[in-house]
Amino acid sequence: MSALLEIEDLVVDLPVAAGTLHAVRGISLSIARGETLCLVGESGCGKSLTSLAVMGLLPKAARRRATRMTLGGEDILDATPDRLSDIRGQRMAMIFQEPMTSLNPAWSIGNQLEEALLRHRRVRRAEARDRAVFLLEKVGISAAASRLGQYPHQLSGGLRQRVMIAMALMCGPELIIADEPTTALDVTIQAQILRLLIDLQREFSMGLLFITHDLGVVSRIADRVAVMYAGEIVETGPAADVLSRPNHPYTQGLLDCIPRPGTVARGARLGTIPGVVPNLAGRIEGCAFLDRCPSRRPHLCRQPVELRGLGDGRAYRCILPPADAAPPAPEPAFA
């Protein structure tokens, strides 16, 4: 099967006052056409930087390397800036977290939508306009034609995010990257936007890389999920499996933090993960989750822990046996 997006061993370093921040520490992932992969993790785990690295939109100071990064078979790691800008917006598009500030206040909605198509296709402005109206309707904006002349400040956050989605679709991209697109919105709007994204993704069978910290969202939309912690993927697999039978203590910890009726007794405390994220400025020896792990075995976890494949599409980065393996296996045994 040819994957749409393939990333192998991606590393992103950010220079900071104290030295170098190893924000993304060797992650590999792939997305097939028409597939939704959710990248989950808490703030600062490197999930946004991963998405920006794919788009080639990292901050200037950031350093990116990988052994491989391809989109539909085309190398996007060493592509020239010119070629990359041809690909951006055309074959892959991005939706950002902040709809309030992601549109240019000085230009009308129509202008900003049209330019996305005019940049990549030899079409007349009228055609671009038609496409803009078509997509605005598609994302559920009423009176689409009359919206073209409006400016971002005249629209609500939810509408702006719909415009951003329409803008991402202008060239019919194969891959959509959505970086917490619903985080800044009201809860009711969140659900609508989520629904919309999933419908559109199915309709146009695009690959979707959805970045979120919300496991509730993952359960609703993801085909597969990749859980990130401290710049690494600690667990990945089909979403349903990972959410129902997590193998990594961090995934389990995240799931315990979700309030669900029936599972938490009235008045009882919600789960939390004790401790703090490790400092990414230095080297991390062994398991990054060690200090916060409820079932750590220090003498084993001090060595680098490899991502262990289980053969059913799942993999996790822990020395513990998989959750569904009945008896706890005697120590090491896995390589």
């Binding site: 939109l57 800008s85 041809d86 991005m94 500030t101 992601s102 240019n104 206040p105 000085a106 230009w107």
Partner: peptide, 25 residues
């Protein structure tokens, strides 16, 4: 700003990003 990142995400060429999207503001 975020909207400059959006403009680059659309694949717009650097001069367009600079003059159309940045300078005017």
């Amino acid at each position: 700003s975020d909207y400059i990142r959006t403009a680059r995400a659309k694949g717009l060429r650097p001069p367009v990003v600079l003059f159309k999207h940045a300078l005017r503001n």
